[in-house]
C-alpha cells in the first residue's frame, strides 16, 4: 500500500472509530444502561483496526472455520464490542438498545452462546489469553492459516493465568497468536503503577506492570510498543505481528482511558458508571464534533 493510501485508510478507520463510539453511547443511553465507559473508549480504536482492517471474518458465515479468532479478554468492554459487531454486519444495530435488558444477548460482558460473531464468553478477567493460546494451537494442529487476536486490559495482566498462558505460548512458539494490551494505565481501584497506597479516593498502584515490555521479551514474546490511538502505528503493529515467525507477538498499545470524552479521560472513577441524560448529550456532542473535524480533514 502506498503511503498516501495508508494515510487515507488510517483516517477512514479513525472516522469509523468515532462513529462507533457514538453508536455505543446511543446504545447505552437508549437502554438506560450503566457500564464501563473508560475501558470501552480506550479500546475502541484497537477494535476498529482489528475488525475493519486486520481480521478475516465473515458476518454472513460466522462459524466459518478459517476465520481469524478474536477474544475480548477484558470482557467488561462489551459495550464497545457490540456496536463493532453490528457495524461489521453480524446483526442489526436496531437490537442494540436491548443492552443489559432481560434475556438480551447483549450485556455487560460478551456471551459466546448468544452474540453472533463472538468467539468467547469473557468478563471474568484472566480467561481470554489462555483461551486464545488454545485456539492458536488448534489452528496449528489443524493446519489452518487463521490468526488469533486477544485484547487484554493492563490491570488484567496481573492474573496468574495470563502468565501461565504467556509461558505456554512462548514454549510452543505460537506465532499465529497476537495479544494486545490496552495500556490505559488504570485498573478499577486506581492506577496500576505506584506504591500501592490509598490516595484521593483510589489506589495508587493496584499492581506494578512495568517494565512490562522487558518482562514479556524475557518470556520469549516479540514485543511491539505503539500509540493505541494512532491508526498508522496500529496498522503497522498488526502487520509486523503477522510477519513475525517463531514466537507470539504482543502489542503494548499506549491508550487513554475514556479516550474521546474529555470529562472522563484519564479518570479511574469513570471505569464504571452511569451517565445522566445531560452527560450523554455532552459526550455525544463532543464525539460528533470530533467526527465532523475528521470528515472535513478527509474531504
Amino acid at each position: 500500500m502506498s503511503e498516501e493510501n495508508r494515510e487515507k485508510l488510517a483516517l477512514e478507520l479513525e472516522r469509523k472509530a468515532y462513529k462507533l463510539r457514538i453508536m455505543e453511547l446511543e446504545m447505552m443511553r437508549d437502554s438506560e444502561a450503566s457500564g464501563h465507559y473508560g475501558g470501552s473508549m480506550s479500546v475502541m480504536d484497537i477494535l476498529t483496526v482489528l475488525y475493519f482492517k486486520v481480521m478475516r471474518v465473515d458476518p454472513h458465515n460466522e462459524d466459518w472455520e478459517d476465520r481469524d479468532r478474536f477474544v475480548l479478554s477484558k470482557g467488561h468492554a462489551c459495550n464497545a464490542l457490540c456496536p463493532v459487531l453490528a457495524e461489521k454486519g453480524f446483526f442489526s444495530r436496531d437490537i442494540l438498545p436491548t443492552f443489559n435488558k432481560l434475556d438480551s444477548p447483549f450485556g455487560m460482558h460478551p456471551d459466546k452462546n448468544k452474540i453472533s460473531g463472538c468467539d468467547a464468553s469473557t468478563g471474568s478477567l484472566g480467561h481470554g489469553a489462555p483461551i486464545a493460546v488454545g485456539m492458536a494451537m488448534a489452528g496449528k494442529y489443524l493446519k489452518k492459516d487463521y490468526r488469533v487476536y486477544v485484547v487484554v486490559g493492563d490491570g488484567e495482566v496481573a492474573e496468574g493465568s495470563n502468565w501461565e498462558a504467556i509461558e505456554i505460548a512462548s514454549h510452543f512458539k505460537v506465532d499465529n497468536l497476537c495479544a494486545t494490551i490496552d495500556r490505559n494505565k488504570y485498573s478499577l481501584d486506581g492506577s496500576t503503577e505506584g506504591p500501592g497506597v490509598f490516595k484521593e479516593g483510589g489506589i495508587e498502584g493496584t499492581m506494578t506492570l512495568e517494565p512490562i515490555d522487558k518482562k514479556l521479551e524475557d518470556f520469549g514474546w516479540h514485543v511491539i510498543k505503539c500509540d493505541g490511538h494512532d491508526f498508522i502505528q496500529l496498522m503497522g503493529a498488526y502487520d509486523e505481528a503477522a510477519r513475525t515467525k517463531g514466537r507470539p507477538t504482543v502489542i503494548i498499545a499506549d491508550t487513554l482511558k475514556g479516550k474521546g470524552i474529555s470529562f472522563i479521560e484519564d479518570k479511574y472513577e469513570w471505569h464504571y458508571g452511569q451517565f445522566t441524560p445531560e452527560q450523554y448529550k455532552t459526550a455525544i456532542d463532543e464525539l460528533t464534533a470530533t467526527l465532523k473535524r475528521l470528515e472535513q480533514k478527509s474531504a
Binding site: 478477567l125 484472566g126 490491570g155 492474573e159 496468574g160 496500576t192 489506589i203 493496584t206 499492581m207
Partner: peptide, 10 residues
C-alpha cells in the same frame, strides 16, 4: 489494607 490487583489465587 492490602491491594493486590487482579490476583485472586495468590
Amino acid at each position: 489494607f492490602i491491594e493486590t490487583g487482579l490476583t485472586e489465587q495468590a
